[in-house]
């Protein structure tokens, strides 16, 4: 069952220099217990997408077009007060980037979770407290620690507490925006396993936003590779990683150190991400693409289905694929 459907979503920021096209025409669906990983580099629009889905946007941001459908309701056309009352936390919840700073340092962790519960549902304080204890237990924190302040928690525990808070009102969708940045690798592994187990238990869909391709590969059922506000490749994770089609995806995978492989040389994708106020004409990746030709500078390639359930936005994906299979 689809829990979230995003259709042709566009969100631009207005600045004095022009419009920043941070989210530029995205389409995707997420089902119950399904994880969509969105991988991309800084400035590609992935965090802007998270804020758009929650409608937590700064005043200069505008949703230009598109729909965000959760349980038959379109958030784009919904009033802000309704989104606050009926959507945020209850239907879509966020596990924020940098949980270190997401908790208020002057309140007890348990009280902060209970407050979120009481603010969004009609329950008594005692019930909220009881719920908080259950949640803390669920994420592997001793409920007695709820009486402690954030500075008494380690980084990993703070992130666990944030996950507990995000689950407090049984949301349909969890958005995890770089949920493990600044955490050590063993702690990160614990958080990832926790997210995977709670999404099954709560039957939520998860959007995992990360720059770490390996993390996305390990967690996601579907993967989207985002570049300059657009998906350049989208499909079942197995397809995207086993049979990558877009030159940007190939470049990222070549730049990524894989611990299982013998010593290997890494390659970079030369250049840097484009300015989203005035993106390159045609394909936005063309200035960095080793395969770019004239048509790439003039015509923007649409995201088309290359194989069942696997889409790519590249004029030359067939040629590149043939060329690569010859080499190996």
């Amino acid at each position: 069952m689809t829990v979230l459907s995003v259709q042709n979503l566009k969100m631009y920021y207005k600045t004095s220099a022009g419009e920043v096209k941070a989210v530029d025409g995205l389409n995707f669906d997420i089902g119950e217990r399904e994880v969509l990983g969105i991988a991309g580099e800084s400035g590609c629009g992935k965090s802007s997408l998270a804020s758009t889905l929650l409608k937590l946007l700064p005043s200069n941001a505008e949703i230009k077009e598109g729909k965000i459908i959760v349980e038959d309701a379109d958030l784009v056309s919904m009033k802000d007060s309704d989104v606050r009352r009926n959507v945020r936390w209850t239907r879509i919840a966020l596990v924020p980037q940098g949980a270190m700073n997401a908790l208020n340092p002057v309140f007890r962790v348990g009280d902060q979770i209970a407050e979120a519960i009481m603010a969004h549902s009609n329950v008594s304080k005692a019930d909220a407290r009881a719920k908080t204890e259950t949640l803390l237990k669920l994420v592997g924190i001793d409920p007695a620690r709820g009486r402690h302040y954030p500075h008494e928690f380690s980084g990993g525990m703070k992130q666990r507490a944030m996950i507990a808070m995000s689950l407090a009102l049984n949301p349909k969708i969890l958005i995890a925006d770089e949920p493990t940045t600044a955490l050590d690798v063993i702690v990160q592994a614990g958080i990832i396993r926790l997210l995977l187990s709670v999404k099954d238990e709560f039957q939520t869909g998860v959007i995992l936003i990360s720059h770490d391709l390996a993390l996305v590969a390990q967690m996601s059922d579907k993967t989207a590779i985002m570049y300059a506000g657009k998906f350049v490749e989208y499909g079942a994770s197995k397809e995207v990683y086993k049979n990558p089609l877009h030159p940007y995806t190939l470049g990222l995978l070549g730049a990524f150190a894989d611990i299982r492989k013998p010593k290997e040389a890494l390659t970079s994708v030369p250049g840097s991400p484009p300015d989203l106020i005035d993106p390159p004409s045609g394909c936005r990746f063309n200035p960095r693409c080793p395969y770019a030709e004239e048509v790439c500078r003039t015509d923007e390639p649409p995201l088309v289905e290359a194989f069942p359930g696997h889409s790519v936005a590249c004029h030359f994906w067939k040629e590149i694929r043939a060329q690569r299979s010859q080499k190996t």
Binding site: S154, G156, V185, I186, V187, Q188, A189, G190, I192, R193, L196, D212, L213, A214, L215, A217, Q218, S220, S237, K238, Y241, K242, L253, F256, D258, I259, R260
Partner: peptide
């Protein structure tokens, strides 16, 4: 424990594991 916790860019690879208790 460190190596087992490092994710790899392969959806079919064994999932990352936590082999050290606590922090």
């Amino acid at each position: 424990a460190l190596t087992a916790a490092v994710p790899v860019p392969d959806p079919d690879a064994p999932k990352i594991r936590v082999l050290a208790r606590g922090e």
